[in-house]
Design a protein around this nucleic acid. Structure first.
Length: 809
RNA sequence: GCGGUCAUGGCGGAAUUGGCAGACGCAUAAGACUAAGGAUCUUAUGAGUAAUUUCUCGUGCAGGUUCAAGUCCUGUUGACCGCACCA
C-alpha cells in the first residue's frame, strides 16, 4: 500500500467533511482532550512532539469512537527567550522567525494526521491573544492579586543585562564568563500564595499521577509553627519563623538573611567592612548551593544583639547565607542544641549550646532534634514538645511577641521580565498618580516592532520612546509605560480557556461557553511541568473563579505525563551530543501510521526510553500482514448459518478478549499492550482462516472488529481498509466494538497447583467448581499424589481462577 | 543539597495491583515453501542441571513481613527528572 498516497487522500477527505471539527450541538457529550502546546522552535517537530501529540491523538480518536464529542485543539506558546536570543545573534526579528517556525510546524502537525480542530488554533504572540493576557493581568491587579516589590535578578555586570537562570553557568555569564551577581529591581508579582492552602487541599480530588501531586505538595511546602518577635537593642523588631517554638529558651543567636534590610541598619561600625564583604559574596551564590546541607555553614556577626522575648536574654545577631530572605520571614533563631545546622554553626563560631529538650527515653545526645520533654524553660519545664509549642506561642501572643503561623515554601510568582519578546505589562507610571492600569478599552498594549533588543542594561522596551511615552489615563500628565514584559508562563496559564472561544473579540472567553467546555477532561504533557506551569494554571483558574468568570475549581480533571524518548545512546537528545533522531526520515520511509504505531508499541508511554529503530520494521511487517489478511477476506461470501464448534469458540474468545483488553488499555494510555493484543488477534484470525472448514461470516466479523480497534492507532491505514471492506462512511463515525462477555466465559479453567507455594502441576476444573471439588481434583492429580505421599495437607488456599496452594507437613 | 521517579532475559518491554515471572515484539537457531529469499509460514529460545515429563537458581544489592513478594516494609547502590528567569 502506498502510505503517502493514502495519508494525503484521507487527510483531504477529513478536512473536506469537517470530520475533526468540534460540533457545538453535541456539547453535552464533550470530551476536552488537551496536549501541552509547543514552543515554535526552528528545529521543527521532534520525536517528543510526535510522542505527545501523535499518541494522545490516538487516545482522542479512541474517545471519539466511544461516543464522545472530542475537542482537541492545538496552538503555539510563541513568546520566549530563544527567539529573542536568536534575534540577537542573527538580527532576524523574533516575530519573523516565530511565525515562520509556526508555519512549518503547522504543516508537519497536519501531516501527522491528528484530529486537531484548527478552527480553535491560538498563537500567544498575536495581539488578539495577548490582549487578553494583559486583560488577565489587569483583573489580577484589580483584585489585589498583582503587586510590585523589589526582588533580586541575575545580573551580568559586563554585558550589563539581566540573565535567566539557564544563562548562568556555574555562577558565571554564559556569554562572557563574568561572575554573575544579584541585583534588586522593582518587579511585578502575582499573589499565588493567597491560594496556597486551596492549591494544596484540592490535589486530593484530582486524577493526576501521585508523583506529580507529591511534587506539588512539597513545592507548596506547608509547615505549621509560629512567628516570634525579637527586638534589637536599637528597638527594631523582627520576626523569626519556627516550627520548634518549644526550643525558644535554647536560643543562643539569631540569623538574618544577608539581604534582610535590617542587616545594613543594625550592623555596627566596627563590623561594617566584614558584613559588607559577606553580603557581596552571598550575591554570587545561587540558592541551591546556599541550601545545601553538606556545604560548610558560613556567617558573620553584625555587632548587634537582640532580646529573646521568652526569657529576656541578649543574643548576638548574625548574617548567614543559609537563611533565605524569600522564605518565611528571612530570619531564624539559632538553637544549637536541637538543630543539626545550628549545632554546626555554633561550633564554628563558638556560640553557647543550651539544652532545653531532654530525651525522655534515654541519653540526650546533641544535637537532639526530636521531640522530648522541656527543661531549663522556666514555667514550661516538664511539658512535652508538642504541648510546649502551643503553650509558649499562646503565652508570647499575650504579650504581642508571637503567634501561631502556618508557613508555605511557595513564593509569589514573579512575572516581570526585562525582555523584548513577551506581552507588555499593561501598566503606566505617572509622576502624580503613581502606578495606573491601562484602561481596558486601550488594550492591547501592542509590542512595538522596531526596537533595539540587543542587551545594554535596560529593558529593550525602555529604549523605544514611542512606546514609553504616554499620557496618564487618570490625570493626562506625561507618564511612562511599564517597560517589562510578562513571563511566558502567564500566557500559558490560561490558554486552555481561550481555545473553545478563540475568536471572541469582546472577551477573553464567553463564560457560558467555557463553563460548558471545561474543565479539560484529559491533559497530556511532560512531567517537567509538574510544579510550575501546572500550578500556575490552577492558580489562575481559581482566581478567575473567584472573580465570577468560571464555575469550576480545577482546570485539568485528569492528567497524564508522557515519558521522554532519549537518543539511541541513552542520553537526552541534543544537537551537541549529536544523537538527535528526526521523525522525518522514518515517516518518509514507512509513513506516519507505521511511525505512530511503533512509538505506541516500543515504549511504556509514561516512561519513554532510548530510541531503537530495530522494531519499526517489525511494525511495518505487522501492518503488511493485516493488509494481506483484509485483501484476502474481501472476496469471502458470508454464509447464512454458522456452526459454532470449538474452533469457532476460540476465535470468538480471541475477538472478545481483544476488544476488552484494547478498550481498557487505550483508556489508560497503555498503548504498548493494546498493540500486543491486536497482534495476538491477527494471529488468531490467521490461524482460524487456515482451517479447511471455517465460517466466512465469523472471519469477516473478526476482521471488521480488528479494523475498528486499529483505527485510532493507524487512522489513515484503517480508513483505507474500511473502504476496501466496502464501507462508504469514515471508520471514525462507527461505534467502538463492544465486548461479547459471553464469549469470554470458558467452560473449563486451568489452575496451577502449588505445594508449599511452589507450582508443581496444572489442573483443569469446571468454571463453577466449588472449593471442595477443586481440592479433590488437585489431590487426585498423579504428580501431586506422588509428592504429597503420606504427608498431611494442613491447609488449602484457593485463589479463584488462578491457583490452589496445598500446605503440606 | 532538597523534592520526585525508576531498576525485570542478549534488547524494547508484560505481569489482571500480593497469586503460575518473562505476554507481545526484536534478535538468534532449526525447519517448511522456493529457481532464489533480506519475503512468507511453523517451531524453539531466562540461567544452570538433567538429557522423555528432573531438580535448582532467578526481577540492582542486603534484610524483613506473608501460605505466597517484581509488587508491601527497612536499609543500601546506581540512573534519570525538577528546583522558581528554558518552555
Amino acid at each position: 500500500m502506498d502510505m503517502k498516497q493514502i495519508e494525503a487522500k484521507w487527510q483531504a477527505k477529513w478536512e473536506k467533511d469537517k470530520l475533526n471539527y468540534f460540533n457545538k450541538k453535541n456539547v453535552d457529550k464533550k470530551f476536552y482532550c488537551l496536549e501541552m502546546f509547543s514552543y515554535p522552535s526552528a528545529s521543527k517537530l521532534h520525536l517528543g512532539h510526535w510522542y505527545n501529540y501523535g499518541l494522545t491523538d490516538s487516545y482522542a480518536r479512541f474517545k471519539r469512537m466511544k461516543g464522545f464529542e472530542v475537542f482537541q485543539p492545538m496552538g503555539f506558546d510563541a513568546f520566549g527567550l530563544p527567539a529573542e536570543n536568536f534575534a540577537i545573534k542573527t538580527g532576524k526579528h523574533p516575530e519573523l522567525t516565530t511565525l515562520e517556525n509556526i508555519e512549518t510546524m503547522e504543516g508537519q502537525l497536519k501531516a501527522m494526521g491528528a484530529m486537531f480542530d484548527w478552527n480553535a488554533e491560538i498563537k500567544t504572540c498575536m495581539p488578539d491573544y495577548y490582549k487578553w493576557t494583559q486583560w488577565l493581568f489587569l483583573k489580577l491587579y484589580e483584585n489585589n492579586l498583582a503587586y510590585r516589590k523589589e526582588a533580586p535578578v541575575n545580573w551580568c555586570p559586563s554585558c550589563n543585562t539581566v540573565l535567566a537562570n539557564e544563562q548562568v553557568d556555574d555562577g558565571h555569564c554564559e556569554r562572557c564568563g563574568t561572575q554573575v551577581i544579584k541585583k534588586n529591581l522593582t518587579q511585578w508579582f502575582f499573589k499565588i500564595t493567597q491560594y496556597a492552602e486551596e492549591l494544596l487541599s484540592c490535589l486530593d480530588g484530582l486524577d493526576w499521577p501521585e508523583k506529580t501531586k507529591a511534587m506539588q505538595k512539597n513545592w507548596i511546602g506547608k509547615s505549621s509553627g509560629g512567628e516570634i518577635t525579637f527586638t534589637a537593642e536599637s528597638g527594631d523588631e523582627f520576626k523569626v519563623f519556627t516550627t520548634r517554638a518549644d526550643t525558644v529558651f535554647g536560643v543562643s543567636y539569631v540569623v538574618l538573611a544577608p539581604e534582610h534590610p535590617l542587616v545594613k541598619k543594625l550592623t555596627t561600625e566596627d563590623r561594617a567592612k566584614d558584613v559588607e564583604k559577606y553580603v557581596e559574596e552571598t550575591a554570587k551564590i545561587n540558592e541551591i548551593e546556599r541550601l545545601s546541607t553538606t556545604r560548610e555553614k558560613t556567617g558573620v556577626f553584625i555587632g548587634a544583639y537582640a532580646i529573646n522575648p521568652a526569657n529576656g536574654k541578649k543574643v548576638p545577631i548574625y548574617a548567614a547565607d543559609y537563611v533565605l530572605y524569600s522564605y518565611g520571614t528571612g530570619a531564624v533563631m539559632g538553637v544549637p542544641a536541637h538543630d543539626a545546622r545550628d549545632y554546626l554553626f555554633a561550633q564554628k563560631y563558638d556560640l553557647p549550646v543550651n539544652v532545653v529538650i531532654r530525651n525522655p527515653k534515654g541519653e540526650t545526645e546533641l544535637p537532639y532534634c526530636e521531640d522530648g520533654m522541656l527543661v531549663n524553660s522556666l514555667t514550661f519545664d516538664g511539658l512535652s514538645s508538642e504541648d510546649a509549642r502551643k503553650a509558649i506561642l499562646n503565652s508570647l501572643s499575650k504579650e504581642g511577641k508571637g503567634q501561631h503561623k502556618t508557613n508555605y515554601r511557595l513564593r509569589d510568582w514573579l512575572v516581570s521580565r526585562q525582555r523584548y519578546w513577551g506581552a507588555p505589562i499593561p501598566m503606566i507610571h505617572c509622576p502624580h498618580c503613581g502606578t495606573v492600569p491601562v484602561p481596558y478599552k486601550d488594550l492591547p498594549v501592542e509590542l512595538p516592532k522596531d526596537v533595539e533588543f540587543r542587551p545594554d542594561g535596560k529593558s529593550p522596551l525602555a529604549k523605544c520612546e514611542s512606546f514609553v511615552k504616554v499620557k496618564c489615563p487618570v490625570c493626562g500628565a506625561d507618564a511612562e509605560r511599564d517597560v517589562d514584559t510578562l513571563d511566558t508562563f502567564v500566557c500559558s496559564s490560561w490558554y486552555y480557556l481561550r481555545y473553545p472561544d478563540n475568536k471572541n473579540e469582546d472577551m477573553p472567553f464567553d463564560p457560558e461557553i467555557i463553563n460548558q467546555m471545561l474543565p479539560v477532561d484529559k491533559y497530556v504533557g511532560g512531567p517537567e511541568h509538574a510544579c510550575m506551569h501546572l500550578l500556575y494554571a490552577r492558580f489562575i483558574t481559581k482566581a478567575l473563579r473567584d472573580m465570577g468568570y468560571l464555575k469550576f475549581d480545577e482546570p485539568f480533571t485528569s492528567l497524564t505525563h508522557q515519558g521522554i524518548i532519549l537518543g539511541p545512546d541513552g542520553n537526552r537528545m541534543s544537537k551537541s551530543r549529536g544523537n538527535v533522531v528526526s521523525p522525518d526520515t522514518y515517516i518518509e520511509e514507512f509513513g506516519s501510521d507505521v511511525f505512530r504505531l511503533y512509538l505506541m508499541f516500543g515504549f511504556d508511554y509514561t516512561e519513554g526510553g532510548p530510541w531503537d529503530d530495530n522494531g519499526i520494521k517489525s511494525i511495518a511487517k505487522f501492518v503488511e500482514r493485516i493488509e494481506r489478511l483484509v485483501t484476502k477476506v474481501c472476496s469471502y461470501k458470508p454464509e447464512k448459518n454458522v456452526q459454532i464448534g470449538k474452533e469457532e469458540k476460540d476465535l470468538l474468545y480471541a475477538e472478545a478478549y481483544c476488544v476488552k483488553s484494547v478498550d481498557r488499555d487505550m483508556n489508560v494510555f497503555s498503548f504498548n499492550t493494546a498493540i500486543a493484543r491486536l497482534m495476538e488477534f491477527v494471529s488468531a484470525i490467521n490461524k482460524y482462516d487456515g482451517l479447511s472448514e471455517k465460517s466466512n461470516s465469523l472471519i469477516l466479523k473478526a476482521v471488521d472488529t480488528l479494523i475498528l480497534l486499529l483505527a485510532p492507532c493507524a487512522p489513515h491505514f484503517a480508513e483505507e481498509l474500511w473502504a476496501m471492506r466496502g464501507n462508504k462512511k469514515s471508520v471514525f463515525l462507527e461505534d467502538y466494538p463492544v465486548c461479547d462477555e459471553n464469549a469470554l466465559v470458558k467452560d473449563e479453567v486451568e489452575l496451577a497447583v502449588q505445594i508449599n507455594s511452589k507450582v508443581k502441576a496444572k489442573i483443569n476444573v469446571s468454571k463453577d467448581a466449588t472449593d471442595d471439588e477443586i481440592k479433590a481434583i488437585a489431590l487426585a492429580n498423579d504428580i501431586i499424589k506422588k509428592i504429597v505421599g503420606d504427608s498431611q495437607v494442613v491447609k488449602v488456599i484457593i485463589v479463584k481462577g488462578r491457583l490452589v496452594n496445598l500446605i503440606v507437613k
